[in-house]
Amino acid sequence: MDTFLAVAFSFPTVIFSVLLCVAIVYWLISLVGLGDIEADGDIDASGDFSGLMVTLGLQGVPLPLVLTLLFLCSWLVSYFTVLLWGALVPAGFLYWLFGFAVLAAALIISVLVTAMLVRPLRPLFRRAYLPPLQKRIIGTACVVISATVTETKGRAEAVLDGAHLVLQVRSHTPLSHRERAVLIEHIPDKNAWWVVPESEFLAGDSAG
């Protein structure tokens, strides 16, 4: 136990020990209902930070989970590196140099390991946080596959997340076969969607 505490609270492991303790406290608070663990299933695509997360392959799961995995992996790498080789490094400047090298290596390795760990988790969070179809499909382009589309009947095909959907559609402006349109509103009682011609939508005249 003395060895464990000595390594865990020595440089550089102490940095990750503190961060890991913060993460554990966060999850404990969330577990008893005093905190809010709801987080977006994906990181917003805007901003330098989110762009960096996407580049590192850490997107697609809640940020608190990503940080917890990063802290845990970094702590493990740092702890066992210092445990195995720390005693061989002389105290003073060389040990501080060794510590910074371990710090950098732990961060790099933890990013690589965390990226591998979150990859199989993405589908789980994508399903958990995916908005309803009625919200996601609004603004999606479609192609008329029936002979016509009117205010009372019509069908169109749309592609959403790689899936081809055949939808009941309605339009105030008559549309013909293979004409392109845009879904603008859901009709709950008919399980259909109002559409407007794509050219009209792009021109900004979708109010009618």
Rank of each mutant, 00 (worst) to 15 (best):
M1C: 00
M1Y: 06
D2F: 02
T3S: 11
T3Q: 06
T3W: 08
L5M: 15
L5Q: 03
A6L: 06
A6H: 07
V7R: 06
A8C: 12
S10E: 03
F11P: 01
V14L: 15
L19P: 11
L19W: 03
C21H: 11
V22G: 10
I24N: 03
Y26T: 04
W27C: 06
L28G: 12
S30P: 04
S30F: 07
V32H: 06
L34I: 14
L34A: 15
L34M: 13
G35W: 07
D36Q: 08
I37K: 11
E38Q: 14
A39L: 06
A39D: 14
D40K: 08
D40V: 14
D42W: 04
I43K: 00
I43L: 05
I43H: 00
S46L: 10
D48N: 12
G51T: 15
L52G: 00
L52H: 02
V54K: 13
V54C: 05
G57I: 02
G60E: 03
P62Y: 10
V66H: 06
L67F: 06
L67N: 04
T68C: 04
L69K: 10
L70W: 06
F71V: 11
L72D: 06
S74V: 12
W75M: 08
V77K: 06
S78K: 08
S78R: 10
Y79M: 04
F80V: 05
T81L: 01
T81E: 04
V82Q: 02
L83T: 03
G86D: 01
L88R: 08
L88S: 14
V89Q: 03
A91Y: 13
F93A: 15
F93E: 10
Y95Q: 13
W96E: 09
L97S: 09
L97N: 04
V102T: 02
L103P: 03
L103K: 11
L107P: 02
I108V: 13
V111A: 10
L112I: 09
L112T: 07
V113I: 15
V118Q: 00
R119H: 12
R119F: 02
L121C: 04
L121D: 05
L121K: 02
L124N: 04
F125T: 12
L130Y: 11
L130I: 05
L130F: 11
P131L: 14
P132C: 10
P132A: 08
P132M: 00
L133G: 10
Q134A: 15
K135Q: 15
T140D: 05
V144W: 08
V144T: 03
T148C: 08
T148D: 12
V149H: 01
V149F: 07
V149Q: 03
T150I: 08
E151H: 05
T152R: 10
K153W: 05
K153F: 13
K153A: 15
G154E: 01
V159Y: 02
L160C: 07
L160Y: 02
V166W: 11
Q168E: 13
R170N: 06
S171W: 09
S171K: 07
P174F: 00
S176L: 15
S176A: 12
R178I: 11
A181I: 00
L183W: 07
L183R: 11
E185M: 07
H186Q: 14
I187A: 01
P188S: 00
D189E: 11
D189G: 05
K190Y: 10
A192W: 15
A192K: 09
A192V: 11
W193D: 02
W193Q: 06
W194P: 02
W194A: 01
W194R: 09
V195K: 04
V196T: 08
E198K: 12
A207P: 00
G208D: 13
G208S: 12
G208W: 13
